[in-house]
Amino acid sequence: MPSTTTSAAAGRKTTTRRTTARTRTPDAVGLLRADHKKVSELFEQFEKSRSPAKKKQLVDQICMELTVHAQIEEEIFYPEVQAALKDKELVPEARVEHQSIKDLIAAVQGVEPDGEDYDAKVTVMGEWVKHHVKEEQNEMFPKAKKSGLDLAELGERLMQRKEELMAEQQMTH
């Protein structure tokens, strides 16, 4: 970190608080895992919900979270991982899985919950997301950690882009 940031921060905060502030942005893997957990919890809430209004609200949030998550992975994380690992399998497969999930997002986003097909599409999307998450967390993330990538710097870039995209999503919805 540049010394100007350190001295500027030191003038206002104690070292302990500065350390706490630094830990707020997780490394790339931590940030993506947190996204996975959040979306998983939203799918669980959807499964329990009986209210069409609540289902629609949950699906809108799921779609926004997944859209932003997929975009930051595709723009920033996947190219870095693919280059570091010289990967010809994990990242291409993940991109194809993203496209399948995006197709389901398009089928339910902004649509009124209209019964069995709507619920089935959301349920299948949840199953695909669960499968995708499992592969990333069990295969891609451990390899990324061992690759020598600067995951802290990558986490900063992912967080910055995520914040930009979330702001854009808020404006369009």
Rank of each mutant, 00 (worst) to 15 (best):
K162Y: 15
G11Q: 11
E75H: 03
S3A: 12
H69E: 05
R161L: 13
H98D: 07
V122R: 08
E41V: 08
K13P: 00
E47W: 04
E65Q: 11
P142I: 03
Q99N: 12
I62H: 03
R22G: 09
S40P: 00
E127A: 14
T19P: 00
E163T: 11
T4Q: 13
V91W: 04
R157M: 12
T15F: 09
P52E: 05
L66K: 02
H132D: 11
V39N: 02
K146N: 10
D35R: 01
K121C: 06
G126I: 02
C63A: 11
K54T: 14
V81E: 09
Q71Y: 01
D117S: 13
D103K: 08
Q45F: 02
E156T: 14
Q45E: 12
A53V: 13
E89H: 12
R24E: 09
L85E: 07
A144L: 09
S7P: 00
V59Y: 05
L165D: 05
G11H: 04
Q57K: 14
K130G: 10
F77M: 14
S49Y: 07
K130V: 02
V111G: 04
T23D: 10
T6C: 00
Y118R: 07
A21S: 13
L31F: 12
M125K: 05
R18Q: 14
K38E: 15
M125Q: 07
A144K: 06
A28Q: 03
A152T: 15
A144Q: 07
T16D: 10
E168F: 13
S40Y: 10
P79F: 02
D35F: 11
W128A: 06
D60K: 03
A21M: 14
I72T: 06
K86W: 00
L104E: 06
E75M: 08
T67C: 04
L165K: 02
A34V: 03
K48A: 14
F141N: 03
H98K: 05
R24T: 11
G148P: 10
K130I: 01
